[in-house]
Nucleic acid binder design. Structure first.
Length: 509
RNA sequence: GCUCCCAUCGUCUAGCGGUCCAGGACGCCGCCCUCUCACGGCGGAAACCGGGGUUCAAGUCCCCGUGGGAGCGCCA
């Protein structure tokens, strides 16, 4: 079960959806048809000002899973209205991260900068309908206002000076457009992870929806896009929870229903503090660089804030089938590298070695090794996966299969490559040179044979041999190591070790 | 400062009023296995933030406190 299990997959999800829809029908017969037809559409809407953040990747994963589970679609939208900070490199980096994780989108990427005409149209409509107004207040006045309010220990907000203005102060005075937020009542958000959250309209002010240059702001573009794109479920970080009532008000002013919201908690660093660069791996691609399999990262992320009983390992199909927003935790969760390491190893052990080998190949390349010049990587994977947590670790520990170790591990050499062990190495060299068949079981017999003939325990001959072959105290079982390394390389390394022992002897004498 | 959110082992979590002297996982400790390191197996230490209620019964519901976090931009 688990990792490799294709199994039942998403097919089983369909009846569940239907069952839920039927319940809704019973409660709201009038809207039954609409509910049944409503297709799930989720979105991931990063702003391209950096890399794909691990927290962003998790909300993207949740959105993606939810869409997949319900046979809906997943939209990628690039929120690049801040033209100062948005870059194409960043867009590429985000796309690269999504691709590496395998979170393919069904629609998009849509760029907000290409939809300015549409936003202008909506802003104009709001203006025409009196649901928005022009504000001529200068930045200076606004700054002063804010400062004063803070001094008075009040929540800084716009005072509505231009709200009821009928004439502009001067014919071509510059202005921003503000949304006319309701003065009374409250906005209730039925959040799928936080439950019912009520905000009083008196806490909200008239936010700017168009800047002096006419460009739209975030709260406006989000609302227009979610509306136009038919987003049914907005799954995003809970740092947006406070923006939600404003967005709901704009949506209502536009005459549409708000989508379902699910504000997922943010991810914390290992120290429980807000994730930042100093925590190391914050970008998704750094997880590739550090040797994690995308499947393991996905599994790790899905378990952060979500669970299904005691199950720890989920195949993609299982995730799709079992994931539900209602099972999301409301508490922020801290990253835990040791658990990721464990999971990654579980995946390396359970997945098809050929698949793991493809990833390992990239890491070998990073270390300057051409895997074609040595044992098949698939075999290396099988030999090393039990003693590696990451692909980087696996690659480093496997370097000796592809090139002569530059030096011996100090401690290991002192203990195992010395005059005392020379006879064992010599005997091994002779026996291995004469071995009729270079094959694991035979090699095992050869090594144990040498040990017996010298009346030594296996460890007494295996360990010096290990150091001779690998340069250090750790390697796969000695027979396996020999088999993978091959006869020529093995003999050459024993010779080198014998020579090393002699040199040490001379130096000492 | 104001508003909103959050609170079970170190960490990720189970728990959806009685089955909890709180279960699982990672990590940690011990033992077993063993040619090294591991893997694996077995065992162990380790938590309901505090205080009030509600109830026959509270980790589970309510309130307050405390502690964390987020938002309050012509950023997104």
């Amino acid at each position: 079960m688990g990792i490799l299990g294709g199994g039942a997959g998403g097919v089983n999800a369909a009846p569940a959806v239907r069952a839920r829809a039927l319940v809704s029908c019973a409660l709201f017969p009038a809207s039954a048809e609409r509910i049944v037809r409503m297709t799930v559409k989720t979105r991931f809407a990063p702003s391209p000002t950096g890399y794909l953040h691990i927290g962003g990747a998790r909300t993207a994963l949740f959105s993606w899973l939810y869409a997949r589970k319900h046979g809906g679609s997943f939209v990628l939208r690039v929120e690049d209205t801040d033209q100062e900070r948005s870059t194409q490199e960043s867009v590429n980096a985000i796309l690269e991260g999504m691709t590496w994780l395998g979170l393919e989108y069904d629609e998009g990427p849509f760029y907000q900068t290409r939809r300015f005409d549409r936003y202008r149209e909506v802003i104009q409509r709001l203006l025409d309908e009196g649901k928005a107004y022009k504000c001529y207040c200068s930045k200076e006045r606004l700054d002063a206002l804010r400062e004063e309010q803070q001094k008075r220990k009040e929540k800084p907000r716009y005072d509505g000076k231009c709200r009821d203005l009928t004439e502009p102060p001067s014919p071509d005075a510059p202005y921003v457009v503000r949304f006319r937020n309701p003065l009374e009542g409250q906005v209730v958000v039925d959040d799928r992870v936080h439950g019912r959250v009520a905000f009083s309209n008196t806490e909200l002010d008239d936010l700017i929806i168009a800047r002096t240059d006419g460009s739209p702001t975030y709260n406006l573009t989000v609302v227009v896009d979610d509306m136009d794109m038919g987003i049914s479920h907005v799954i995003r970080g809970d740092d947006h929870l406070n923006n939600t009532p404003r967005q709901v008000n704009i949506l209502h002013a536009l005459g549409v229903e708000a989508p379902v919201y699910a504000h997922v908690p943010m991810i914390l660093g290992e120290d429980g503090k807000r994730l930042s660069k100093r925590h190391g791996a914050v970008s998704v691609m750094s997880y590739r660089d550090e040797g994690y399999l995308p499947e393991a990262v996905l599994n790790y992320l899905v378990r952060l804030g979500w669970s299904h009983g005691d199950q720890e390992i989920f195949s993609l199909d299982e995730m799709i089938q079992l994931f539900d927003i209602d099972d999301l935790n409301a508490k922020a969760s801290a990253l835990n590298v040791s658990k990721l390491n464990w999971l990654n190893q579980q995946y390396m052990k359970a997945m098809d070695p050929a698949h793991v080998a493809r990833h390992l190949s990239w890491h070998m390349g990073q270390l300057g090794v051409d895997p074609a010049q040595g044992p098949a990587l698939e075999d290396i994977v099988v030999a090393q996966r039990e003693r590696s947590h990451t692909l980087v670790e696996m690659a480093r520990n496997s370097l000796f299969f592809y090139r002569m170790p530059e030096s011996y591990d100090d401690k290991a050499a002192r203990k195992n490559l010395k005059a005392d062990t020379r006879p064992a190495l010599e005997a091994l060299r002779a026996a291995l040179a004469a071995a009729p068949e270079w094959q694991r079981e035979r090699l095992h017999e050869t090594v144990t044979g040498v040990a017996e003939s010298l009346d030594l325990k296996l460890g007494k001959v295996a360990q010096p041999l290990r150091v001779a072959l690998s340069g250090g105290p750790v390697s796969p079982p000695i027979d396996e190591t020999l088999e993978l390394l091959g006869r020529d390389r093995s003999l050459a390394r024993i010779d080198a070790a014998l020579q090393f022992i002699d040199q040490q002897g001379q130096a000492a004498g």
